[in-house]
């Protein structure tokens, strides 16, 4: 059996991608032996909903409330400001680069890991997941230690007049680091479960490796790929800690949207700050809706 040590699998995949022999019990509403008294049930539901409303829903609502506090005009003015626009442009650019890089890497890595057996495979999966457990600040710092003015490569960079830290390359690298596992980890477990039978059939019928990949493998994983892209994009656009360390915070040049939010907030320009934040919050909500819709498709692919 494939070792799916990927715990943060989409929950739909984990709960619905059951082996076929596990029959799904129709008894969804268990009898009295199997549930709690009505009062307890109501208390638990109330407690759960109150907790979620206070801790999760309220912050999101407040973002939009604060953004529109002074009306539409103030909102639009804040977003049309040149520094805000340049932050939006930079964020879109960085996210696009990360998504393209991670899709390419994710597909290549998943092909090697899922379609072949080799020693050290589970170690490789662990290493791909590593960026998830590293603090964003540490993720930014390691690039400063490599490419900063006191970094390991400082002499070479100076000689060739290349600027990485406090410039676009540094921001891209830090974002690549924190988004590194997103696409690969969605693809690897799914491609492992799908096995190699279809690819073997295609190859033995004379298809080349590339056309096997594009005609057989890719259509089988397209929803998981899209799912990974969604999560990767959301994280790339929203990354704060890692980017903050390498950016240098130059207004209009190296400020991404999250960094611009911080600057405005610290300058007490709350409406403007929340206006930019509301764009990212909207992105988060759209991502969640798309993710929920995709999970149904994903469950189909896995079965």
């Amino acid at each position: 059996m494939s070792s799916t040590s990927h715990s943060a699998l989409p929950q739909a995949l984990a709960s619905e991608g059951l082996p076929a022999h596990v029959e799904v019990r129709p008894l969804r509403h268990p009898g009295p032996t199997n549930t709690e008294p009505k009062a307890v049930r109501i208390a638990i539901i109330t407690l759960a909903l109150a907790f979620l409303a206070l801790c999760i829903a309220l912050p999101v609502v407040s973002v939009f409330y604060e953004a529109f506090k002074r009306g539409w005009l103030a909102y639009v003015t804040a977003l049309a400001e040149p520094d805000a626009l340049s932050a939006i442009r930079l964020t879109l650019l960085v996210a696009a680069i990360s998504v393209i890089a991670n899709v390419t890497f994710g597909l290549i890595a998943a092909w090697a890991i899922a379609k072949f057996e080799f020693p050290g495979r589970s170690l490789l999966i662990t290493l791909i997941d590593l960026p998830f457990s590293v603090s964003p600040v540490v993720a930014g710092l390691v690039y400063v230690l490599l490419f900063g003015s006191q970094g390991l490569f400082a002499a070479y960079l100076q000689a060739w007049d290349i600027k990485i830290i406090f410039a676009l390359p540094g921001i891209v690298l830090a974002t690549l680091f924190v988004t590194f596992p997103f696409v690969a980890r969605e693809l690897i477990p799914l491609m492992q479960e799908q096995g190699t039978a279809e690819e073997e059939a295609a190859v033995s019928l004379g298809a080349s490796g590339l056309s096997t990949f594009f005609r057989v493998t890719l259509p089988n994983v397209k929803w998981a790929l899209l799912y990974g892209v969604l999560l990767c994009n959301a994280r790339a656009m929203g990354e704060f800690g890692a980017v903050s360390v390498v950016s240098g915070h130059v207004r209009g040049l190296t400020n991404t949207m999250p960094l611009h939010i911080e600057i405005l907030y610290n300058e007490y320009q709350f409406v403007a700050s929340f206006a930019v934040a509301s764009l990212l919050a909207l992105l988060a909500l759209v991502t969640l809706v798309a993710k929920t819709l995709l999970e149904a498709r994903l469950a189909e692919d896995a079965s």
Partner: peptide
């Protein structure tokens, strides 16, 4: 999943 999707800086100021 909102805390997964919402950028940390947005969560912070909210």
């Amino acid at each position: 999943d909102i805390p997964f999707a919402l950028p940390t800086a947005v969560a912070g100021i909210a």
